[in-house]
Amino acid sequence: MSDDARFEDGREAPLNLGALDADDLGVISSLVQDAVFPITEMTWQAGQRRFALLLNRFRWEDDGRDRHGPERVRSLLVVDNVLRVSSQGIDRGDRDVILSLLSVAYEAGRDGAGHVLLTLAGDGAIKLSVEALEVTLKDVTRPYAAPSKRTPDHGD
């Protein structure tokens, strides 16, 4: 018998959200704050112009933490229309590194183009040059008890 939580316990459904503008992306950013992922779970499919992360996302939207404690869920964060990917402060050669996502933002350019900026803990960042903003966030597993048994704290 597993002690993992189920969406049904909280009468919640898995997230499946899309963002086509900066305001929508702000909602997704708040939901992926403090998500962690191994560097090996980051991929750019240049032919499909798609960048994807498989995240262990903290469930900020969960109102049932008092019943079952803090939870995480595996989620896919996908950015489409990606023309170029660059990064700073990330050792892509270290296959054992775990990254922590702090925020996702959009910097508009000309004619609908712009940059999606993924800010990471420890001064790392990933910059995605996009032809148009199109981001999706989808939960792909059921929730599980957060290994730390704590809610992330930013000291504010």
Rank of each mutant, 00 (worst) to 15 (best):
S75A: 14
V97L: 07
V130A: 03
T40N: 10
A52T: 14
K127H: 11
D63C: 04
E107G: 07
I39P: 00
S129T: 11
L102Q: 12
S75G: 00
L101R: 01
E61Q: 10
N81V: 06
R50D: 00
L102K: 06
G112Q: 01
P143S: 07
S129D: 13
R95P: 04
P147T: 02
G124F: 06
P152Q: 00
A113W: 01
N56E: 15
D62T: 00
A132S: 13
N56Y: 07
K127W: 09
A105R: 15
L101Q: 03
A52N: 13
I90A: 05
R50P: 06
Q88N: 11
V85I: 12
H115L: 05
K149H: 15
D94Q: 11
M42S: 12
D96H: 12
D91I: 05
D123E: 15
G47I: 12
L133V: 03
V79K: 01
V104F: 01
I98V: 15
D153S: 13
L76H: 13
A52L: 12
K149T: 11
E134K: 15
L53S: 08
S129N: 07
D62K: 06
A113K: 05
D96V: 13
H68D: 04
R95W: 11
E131Y: 09
T136S: 04
G93N: 12
D62C: 00
L118N: 02
S103V: 00
L54C: 14
L118R: 01
A145K: 02
E107Q: 14
T151W: 05
G124A: 00
I126A: 08
E134T: 00
S103H: 07
P152M: 05
L83I: 12
G47H: 11
N56I: 05
T141D: 07
T151M: 08
P38H: 11
P152W: 00
D139H: 01
F51E: 03
G69N: 02
A145M: 11
R59C: 06
N56M: 12
L120Q: 04
G69L: 08
L55E: 03
K149R: 15
A121G: 13
R142V: 13
A113C: 04
R150H: 10
R67M: 10
A113T: 02
L83Q: 14
E41Q: 13
R150W: 10
A52F: 10
E134D: 09
